[in-house]
Amino acid sequence: MAMEKTLNVLVIGGNRYVGKRLLARLLAQGHRVTVLNRGSSPPPPGVEHLRADRDDERSLTDALGTRVFDVVVDQVCYTPRQAAIARRVFTGRTRRYVMTSTVEVYEYEDSAALVREEAVDPSTVTVDPGLPWGDPTFLEAHYGEGKRQAEAVLAAGPGFGSTVVRVAHVLGGDDDFTGRLAHYAERIRTGEPIAVPTANRPATYVYVEEIASCLAWAAGEDFTGPVNAASSGTLSTEELCAAVAAHVPGGRAEFRHVEVGEISPFSFRRSYGMDNARAARLGFTFGEARQWLPRAVAETLGKGG
């Protein structure tokens, strides 16, 4: 078997959750790894650490110095402004750029069928850098649009090849900081109803260990364009809650269906299902969501796995 090529990889952000697992995999594969962030926490041994504000172009160029990389994996690109800075700074510094994107780019593609990558072509997305992307409230409300426009900026023009990995909702790990499964566990424990839409749609998900492996794989490949990253099979809110209830003594989920108003995490008024066939054709095969779901829930709720 031929030895895999050793790469010089820069990871922007990503010192927790998916990111720390990605770093571990890149190191295990023998790559030279550098992480760049604002210095909130140190990377693992063996990883070079650069400190910079990725929103500040001068800060970024000063931190990088004369360094060049085979590939950059950007875990924290949320806006077209950030993507434009990245394109300017890394043109001539890398041959390949991998951006972690999201299923939320498909927020306008409401279909019962699993959505394919071509449903959102970055080359056709209108970019508006004049929107208030620096306003956290605006950015939170326009998360999918920010990612969609960032994808478009990275895809435009020469400089380096780019791919965007559109990540499904991530589950698993004892360090899941979102609190979404804990939300369900608390309501099941107290008997409080879980608010879901009257028409509650399923979604695709991905196991935290699986998406870390997918990103490490994407870093070592040469394909460009978007690729969906989701485990096979959709899950409903009811299935998630059943898996959570298995760890709550005597627990049973009660649901309250609402037409309008606030709903629980992982309940959806529209479908969020992604087709993962392109990833399989390119060489990465995802597992079945129902197979890893019990383990993922057990990890997050601190019950082992």
Results as ranks from 00 to 15, higher is better:
Met3His: 12
Leu7Pro: 02
Leu7Gly: 01
Leu7Lys: 00
Gly13Asn: 04
Gly14Pro: 08
Arg16Tyr: 13
Tyr17Ser: 11
Val18Gly: 00
Lys20Asn: 00
Arg21Phe: 02
Gly30Ile: 12
Arg32Ala: 04
Leu36Ile: 04
Pro42Gly: 14
Pro44Cys: 13
Pro45Gln: 14
Leu50Glu: 14
Arg54Gly: 01
Asp56Thr: 11
Glu57Tyr: 15
Glu57Asn: 11
Ser59Phe: 05
Thr61Lys: 09
Asp62Thr: 12
Ala63Ser: 09
Phe69Gln: 03
Asp70His: 13
Val71Gln: 01
Asp74Thr: 02
Val76Pro: 00
Thr79Phe: 04
Arg81Trp: 10
Ile85Leu: 13
Phe90Glu: 00
Phe90Ser: 02
Thr91Glu: 09
Arg93Leu: 01
Arg95Cys: 05
Arg96Glu: 00
Met99Phe: 12
Thr100Cys: 00
Val105Leu: 02
Val105Gly: 04
Glu107Ser: 09
Tyr108Trp: 15
Glu109Thr: 09
Ser111Cys: 08
Ala113Trp: 05
Glu117Met: 11
Glu118Leu: 08
Asp121Gly: 14
Pro122Phe: 08
Pro122Val: 05
Asp128Gln: 15
Pro129Asn: 08
Leu131Met: 08
Leu131Cys: 09
Gly134Trp: 04
Pro136Tyr: 08
Thr137Ala: 12
Phe138Cys: 01
Glu140His: 10
Glu140Ser: 04
Glu140Cys: 06
Gly144Lys: 13
Arg148Ile: 04
Ala156Ile: 11
Gly157Thr: 14
Gly157Gln: 10
Gly159Val: 13
Phe160Cys: 10
Ser162Asn: 08
Val165Pro: 00
Arg166Ala: 15
Arg166Asp: 14
Val167Lys: 05
His169Ala: 12
Leu171His: 05
Gly172Ala: 12
Phe177Met: 13
Thr178His: 04
Gly179Cys: 09
Arg180Cys: 06
Ala185Glu: 08
Arg187Asn: 12
Ile188Cys: 02
Ile188Gly: 03
Arg189Phe: 01
Gly191Lys: 14
Glu192Tyr: 15
Ile194Thr: 14
Ala195Gly: 01
Pro197His: 09
Ala199Phe: 10
Tyr205Thr: 01
Val206Glu: 03
Glu210Ala: 11
Ile211Phe: 06
Ala216Asp: 03
Glu221Lys: 15
Asp222Met: 15
Phe223His: 05
Thr224Lys: 04
Thr224Arg: 03
Ala230Gly: 14
Ala230Arg: 14
Ser232Val: 05
Gly233Asp: 06
Thr234Ser: 03
Leu235Asp: 03
Leu235Cys: 10
Ser236Phe: 05
Glu238Asn: 12
Glu238Met: 08
Glu238Tyr: 10
Ala245Lys: 07
His247Ala: 11
Val248Gln: 08
Pro249Thr: 14
Pro249Asp: 05
Pro249Gln: 07
Ser264Thr: 15
Arg269Tyr: 10
Ser271Phe: 07
Gly273Thr: 03
Gly273Cys: 01
Ala277Pro: 15
Ala279Ser: 06
Ala279Gln: 02
Phe284Pro: 01
Glu288Phe: 09
Ala289Phe: 06
Pro294Glu: 01
Ala296Glu: 12
Val297Ile: 08
Ala298Cys: 13
Glu299Cys: 08
Thr300Ile: 00
Thr300Trp: 06
Lys303Gln: 15
Gly304Leu: 02
Gly305Val: 03
